[in-house]
């Protein structure tokens, strides 16, 4: 058997990592008769075992796919109060038309709620995603009507819009999407002088290789898609990288490098279909 007929490297990576979707018996028999592939597999195993154990991320996809399809939330008013309270008491004083400091949106099934609040302390508009069932609200993609930018919720389900006042249109709505895959890298003590890599695996067997390298003045984060679940393969995806200091939402590419990346703590990476 010549090398040209051998399975491709990506297949051997999936074989080495034990990912589903590979014909293990075929590959095993192939290895018996192909010294080149035996060498290649040995090399891959050596490579993967060399990844920093300290930086190895936990694998999980708590938020993944809890909202199967993008969910639209519309304004919700729960209180029917006259704008002018007529008091029978003397000297009650006139009541002003309320100007609400918060707007509330809810899904039709009343399982999800989004609350937009103006934080007068920071002068920032903040959105909070809440679940009536206690589902995780971290790592959700939030799209706001009238805004071209998408946001990803933090661990508290919060999106900080900064100085943007929202909603700013007549019929606002919110669309919330859960990630297709989530990767979580725990805080690790990383060597300062050499690149450190970790192989992260989602609950749906998507595999992501994360390499953190140190430039002279900053760190860079290299993301490399090792394997994707079949339902994601070939689809345009977006990736959100979220740390304690903020998040970045980018179109996913096989290999991505994020420069000037700060990594003070845990790192969450979300893939959105």
């Amino acid at each position: 058997m010549t090398l040209s007929n051998c399975p491709k490297g990506r297949v051997w990576d999936a074989f080495v990592l034990g990912l589903p979707g590979v014909d293990v018996s075929f590959l095993t028999s192939h290895l018996d008769g192909c010294e080149d592939c035996r060498f290649l597999v040995s090399d891959r195993r050596s490579y993967y075992s060399s990844l920093s154990s300290e930086a190895r991320g936990s694998i999980g996809d708590v938020a993944a796919r809890i909202i199967p399809v993008p969910l639209k939330l519309t304004p919700l008013s729960l209180v029917e109060i006259s704008s002018r309270v007529e008091s029978v008491m003397a000297a009650a004083g006139p009541a002003e038309q309320p100007s609400l400091a918060a707007s509330t949106f809810a899904s039709d099934d009343r399982r999800w709620m989004v609350k937009a609040v103006w934080d007068s302390t920071t002068d920032h508009e903040k959105l909070y995603v809440m679940s009536s069932e206690g589902s995780t609200v971290a790592g959700l993609l939030v799209r706001l009507s009238g805004l071209a930018v998408d946001y990803v919720t933090d661990a508290k389900g919060c999106v900080d819009l900064g100085g943007v006042r929202w909603p700013m249109e007549a019929n606002p709505h919110v669309i919330v999407t859960s990630p297709a895959a989530t990767f979580s890298l725990k805080a690790a003590v990383l060597p300062e002088q050499r690149p450190s890599s970790a192989l992260l695996k989602s609950g749906h067997n998507d595999v992501l290789k994360v390499t953190i390298s140190h430039a002279e003045t900053s760190r860079s984060l290299r993301l490399e898609i090792v394997a994707l679940a079949p339902d994601l393969a070939g689809k345009p995806l977006r990736v959100a990288v979220q740390s304690a200091t903020g998040s970045q939402l980018l179109n996913l590419e096989p290999v991505m490098v994020l420069d000037d990346f700060e990594l003070p703590g845990a790192l969450d990476i979300y893939l959105f279909a």
């Binding site: 729960l78 209180v79 109060i81 004083g93 006139p94 002003e96 038309q97 100007s99 609400l100 918060a102």
Partner: peptide, 12 residues
């Protein structure tokens, strides 16, 4: 309740 409070706080 929050919405109710919101409106009441604006009532002077």
């Amino acid at each position: 309740e929050a919405q109710r409070l919101e409106r009441r706080l604006e009532m002077g």
